[in-house]
Design a protein around this nucleic acid. Structure first.
Lengths: 142, 142, 142, 142
DNA sequence: GTGGTCTAGACCACA
DNA sequence: GTGGTCTAGACCACA
């Protein structure tokens, strides 16, 4: 389980962790029932203060993605996959809509916007979709 | 000169002001040589803390979009139009690219992303591009 | 706005704050649109670390009860009253049910349980319901 | 000897064990002189950490409910029945009082509280009090 | 070993 | 002035 933290990002570190865990669950890289690394071990691994990691786990718990097993650790909930998947889609869909609407209201022509979009989509095509796409998961996966 | 501020947005209020001014200049709604309202009057009009408005004006000045006319106020610079236009395009292009890349890295299929984009673009088509399109400006305008 | 914290309680301090704010909103002591005391002032008032107060506010925000106004503070949301009221009722109803069920499963006779309940309800009758009952609020209160 | 452990409960597992043993003794399901299963066998049976079971037994011993028979194991003490019964009543009585007082202080009307109580008591009536009622015990039993 | 809570103090953007 | 984030370190119950 690998996480890449960008301390210079404008997104809070603990939120970067939250997002990455959710996306990993949506992609099937992390599975229900799986025990997450402990706060201490993960904070060592990513060189963060344990409180920061704990805050991320706290958020994930509040979001219904993981739950704590007393004295054992945090485990991914059974219904986390569908939760994370639908959240992923709706969040990204909204964000795409917001950006396009902003461009439109800023006065960009629709044709211009389309040109931008196609250029970016073309670039994405060249690189493979990283870990996530290599692990498409069916719910009835072994 | 109308501004719509969303206090619930995750974008700082002063940045919302900056962005709207720049976009209005790019679209020709605000023109070079035009005198901006004073900090005091504008802060009254949009019910904002004067500090917030002043900060926005400072930012616009630092970005080379407006300049002070001694004793008269802030005025839009002659070269602001091309500045704002090119910034508008590059900023929006970058933002579009970032969102699409995020969706891609989150594991969304390219086809899925395209579906989202097309749906949003379709909706935009229905509404006219507001004030901005009604004031198309040539670069050699003032 | 007064809060009473019991540091010896088995309920976490920040949760005591959360609960008291919610109940005060449900009772009408704190109203929508009202600005909560700042983290710093409240932490001084109740002699707690600011982080602890911030954590409570954070929880309240996550629960949709309050929202932050950038640079101004935390404000009670418009829909907080009905939220807190329904939560108050459901939470307490559940807790009552749980205790009665526990007593029942522990082998207490129903008659015995009723005796206990009536004795306690009788005692409650003697004391007035504190601040809360003296401030029954209609939504269309001035 | 059956125990039902809820790992999601906010009550510590070892305390769930302690409570269930005490209630079973109060109800006569477990009787004085009876040998409890060993820590090892019980931890296997209920799939718990042996430490957890041992901790429960320690607590029961500290509470004077069970005692060690050298080389044979833990046995229920002769005076455990009256101990558990009186504790059962006082504990449950206190807990009922606490919940009702909380509801009262939260601003619920007394009438409302009564409605909740009666609804729950009604439901309890429908189901028979499980194992416990089938084993009514006299105090001078063993 | 595990997570939960609390304190203390720093730095930041924002209004 | 406001809240948000992060670090550092302590103590606790629990398994």
């Amino acid at each position: 389980m690998f996480f890449s933290i960008d301390v210079h990002s404008d997104v809070a570190i603990y939120l970067q962790l939250v997002r990455q865990v959710k996306f990993a669950i949506a992609a099937g890289t992390i599975r229900p029932g799986q025990l997450l690394p402990s706060v201490r071990s993960l904070s060592n691994q990513v060189a963060l203060n344990p409180n920061t990691v704990a805050r991320a786990f706290n958020q994930l718990q509040a979001d219904g993605v993981i739950e704590t097993l007393r004295g054992r650790g945090m485990v991914v909930r059974d219904d986390a996959v569908q939760l994370c998947r639908s959240e992923r889609e709706s969040v990204l869909n909204e964000r795409i809509g917001a950006v396009l609407a902003e461009a439109w209201h800023a006065g960009l022509a629709k044709k211009q916007i389309k040109t931008f979009v196609d250029a970016h989509l073309g670039q994405l095509c060249e690189t493979e979709p990283a870990v996530l796409a290599t692990a498409p998961v069916d719910d009835d996966d072994p």
